[in-house]
């Protein structure tokens, strides 16, 4: 692309590095999924520190294992999980803006707290949008730095805006907006239309018992294990699925559907996690405990609008 220059080179690729803008919209009727950052909160703050408008593409780094070399002087920010990041082997604080000089090495090691870190660069990462979005969805082969949805691989180059700027505003995220990923999250769930079809004891269990994040967890969805939930409906005709929908297959173990979910599905649903509850869940490693708590759509909307005003 003519309006971009190489910003970073991948020295070593970790398990999963994907460019994510706000997501791919208007094409779900074709069976194309939403994509976008699974932790909207950390992604939005990384872009904000880098001085970018809402929706700029940032790099989602899952688990770590990624080494990047600056090909030019850059202004960046990292938010989300503490993946033991270092800059030329010196510890790099999370939730902060920082500078990289050409030739410096940024390394993400392994999860210390949380699961996914977001790296934003002033001016945003550049790539050709596919179906209107840069978001990488590997399963669909769409988007990302190569347009084919592939995760980062060694020697890949990440393009940035030529006039990158220095970022603007505060250089770090205020403490009250930094989640404690070690605390047990209470995930807000808006009850859905089939809630009354679940047995009373199952509903009590859903909102009062501990849930454990299963190792079957990815950008499509996160399976929770715990008490078996019983629903009078076992399957339904497939219908559209929103972000955060919590479906309960016949085995009674709920699955919270995230950004890369299938567009339609036929299991009964408890309801939907709020966007910020999805973001928090996306930072939970397998084995972590979570709780579910019911919230009205009105309250969830208030919370979401307050969140978005921070980035207006």
């Amino acid at each position: 692309m003519s309006d971009s220059v190489t910003g970073l080179r991948v020295v070593r690729a970790g398990p999963l590095g994907l460019l994510q803008d706000a997501g791919r919209f208007g094409v779900r009727r074709l069976g194309v999924t939403q994509g976008g950052p699974v932790d909207l909160h950390a992604w939005a703050w990384a872009n904000r520190l880098a001085g970018n408008a809402w929706g700029a593409a940032a790099l989602e780094v899952t688990l770590g294992g990624l080494t990047l070399e600056a090909e030019r002087d850059l202004t960046l920010a990292v938010c989300g999980a503490d993946l033991g990041a270092t800059l030329d082997d010196a510890p790099l604080a999370c939730w902060r803006r920082f500078s990289m000089r050409s030739g410096q090495i940024l390394r993400f090691a392994q999860p210390i707290s949380g699961l996914r870190a977001y790296l934003a660069v002033a001016g945003g990462f550049r790539a050709a949008p596919v179906l209107g979005s840069i978001s990488a969805v590997s399963r669909e082969g769409l988007g990302g730095h190569d347009g084919r949805g592939r995760p980062l691989a060694a020697e890949d180059l990440l393009a940035v805006a030529p006039e990158a700027g220095q970022g603007s505003g505060a250089a770090e995220v205020p403490g009250e907006h930094r989640p404690d990923y070690e605390a047990v999250p209470r995930l807000a769930l808006m009850p859905g239309a089939q809630i009354a079809d679940f047995e009373g004891a199952s509903l009590f269990a859903a909102f009062n018992r501990r849930w454990t994040v299963d190792d079957r967890a990815d950008r499509m969805g996160v399976r929770l294990t715990g008490p078996r939930l019983h629903c009078r409906l076992t399957s339904m005709i497939s219908e559209g699925l929103g972000l955060g929908a919590v479906q309960v297959p016949p085995d009674g173990q709920p699955i919270a559907l995230l950004n890369d979910r299938q567009t339609i599905g036929g299991y009964p649903r408890l309801g939907a996690l709020t966007p910020l509850a999805c973001a928090r869940l996306a930072q939970c490693l397998p084995g972590r405990e979570v709780r579910l708590t019911a919230v009205s759509a009105e309250r969830a909307l208030d919370e979401y609008r307050r969140f978005r005003r921070l980035f207006a």
Partner: peptide, 22 residues
């Protein structure tokens, strides 16, 4: 309007929550 997901018997309508309340 953000997205429409029609299926056999239903239509999921997704709107911009900054523009409209439920």
């Amino acid at each position: 309007l953000v997205d429409l997901v029609p299926s056999y018997t239903t239509l999921l309508v997704v709107f911009d929550p900054l523009a409209l309340t439920p």
